[in-house]
Computed example of a mutant assay.
Amino acid sequence: MFRVIGLYLFSLLFFLAGVGHFIMDGFFVEAMPEWVPFRLFIVYASGIVEIALAILLIYKPTRSRAGIWTTLFLLLIFPVNVYMAFFPAQYDIPVYALWLRLPLQFVLIWWVLKVTKP
């Protein structure tokens, strides 16, 4: 029961994060270093990926693979969180919150693997 609730909660949060890429696209563009090309495209593409993964996590036949892909995605975006932690002056976010996001990423990885394992 808790596993199912955790799955749906994670999927909802991931879906909302994906939608956030379209609502707060400027914030996500600024989260990346300036030397990264096509930043707006990357923001929108990653939003689409997050929404798609959230949906695939709900669908039982794709759940296990979606859990693995979500883990890989979370690892792929981890450098952006590191960048934000090292350059906090650019953001209207408390420095401690930027540093707390780093271990939180691994909590999210554990969470998605826990709720999607066969």
Rank of each mutant, 00 (worst) to 15 (best):
42 I>P: 08
111 W>L: 12
36 V>G: 03
34 E>Q: 05
28 F>I: 00
9 L>F: 15
35 W>Y: 06
42 I>R: 05
113 L>F: 11
58 I>K: 06
21 H>C: 07
59 Y>I: 14
14 F>H: 08
111 W>K: 09
89 A>M: 00
91 Y>E: 09
25 D>Y: 12
88 P>C: 09
70 T>A: 09
91 Y>N: 07
24 M>Y: 15
7 L>S: 12
44 Y>T: 01
10 F>T: 06
87 F>T: 08
22 F>H: 03
74 L>S: 05
97 A>D: 12
24 M>T: 08
69 W>M: 14
20 G>Q: 02
64 S>H: 02
75 L>P: 13
73 F>P: 12
65 R>I: 14
44 Y>Q: 00
109 I>R: 06
92 D>A: 10
48 I>V: 13
23 I>H: 13
19 V>R: 04
113 L>K: 08
68 I>W: 14
83 Y>F: 11
94 P>S: 00
109 I>K: 07
33 P>I: 00
71 T>A: 12
110 W>S: 12
101 R>P: 04
21 H>V: 04
3 R>I: 15
88 P>M: 03
48 I>R: 01
81 N>M: 08
41 F>P: 02
101 R>N: 02
72 L>P: 13
87 F>V: 06
50 E>A: 06
1 M>V: 10
76 L>F: 15
29 V>Y: 02
77 I>W: 03
24 M>L: 13
105 Q>N: 13
92 D>I: 02
26 G>H: 09
85 A>E: 02
77 I>Q: 01
26 G>I: 00
7 L>D: 09
103 P>T: 01
63 R>M: 03
86 F>C: 01
5 I>Y: 10
27 F>H: 07
14 F>N: 02
42 I>G: 06
87 F>E: 03
10 F>P: 13
14 F>R: 02
77 I>P: 10
81 N>C: 09
23 I>Q: 14
46 S>W: 07
107 V>T: 12
18 G>H: 05
117 K>G: 11
78 F>H: 12
116 T>L: 07
102 L>K: 07
14 F>M: 07
62 T>G: 03
88 P>G: 06
51 I>T: 05
2 F>Y: 11
45 A>R: 05
99 W>E: 00
112 V>R: 05
79 P>C: 05
55 I>D: 04
100 L>T: 11
10 F>N: 05
77 I>M: 06
9 L>S: 15
6 G>D: 08
65 R>Y: 15
10 F>A: 08
34 E>I: 01
109 I>G: 10
6 G>N: 10
4 V>W: 04
58 I>E: 10
76 L>A: 15
36 V>F: 10
28 F>T: 00
77 I>F: 08
95 V>G: 09
93 I>M: 10
66 A>C: 13
19 V>S: 08
77 I>T: 09
79 P>V: 01
56 L>F: 13
15 F>N: 05
60 K>I: 13
105 Q>T: 12
20 G>Y: 04
25 D>E: 04
63 R>V: 01
47 G>D: 03
71 T>C: 13
43 V>C: 04
100 L>W: 14
46 S>P: 08
31 A>S: 10
107 V>D: 11
62 T>P: 08
86 F>H: 04
32 M>H: 04
72 L>A: 15
95 V>Y: 12
116 T>I: 10
59 Y>D: 04
52 A>G: 11
59 Y>F: 14
114 K>S: 14
7 L>Y: 11
65 R>Q: 14
100 L>P: 12
108 L>E: 01
86 F>W: 02
67 G>Y: 03
83 Y>C: 01
100 L>G: 15
68 I>F: 14
19 V>N: 06
90 Q>F: 00
82 V>Y: 15
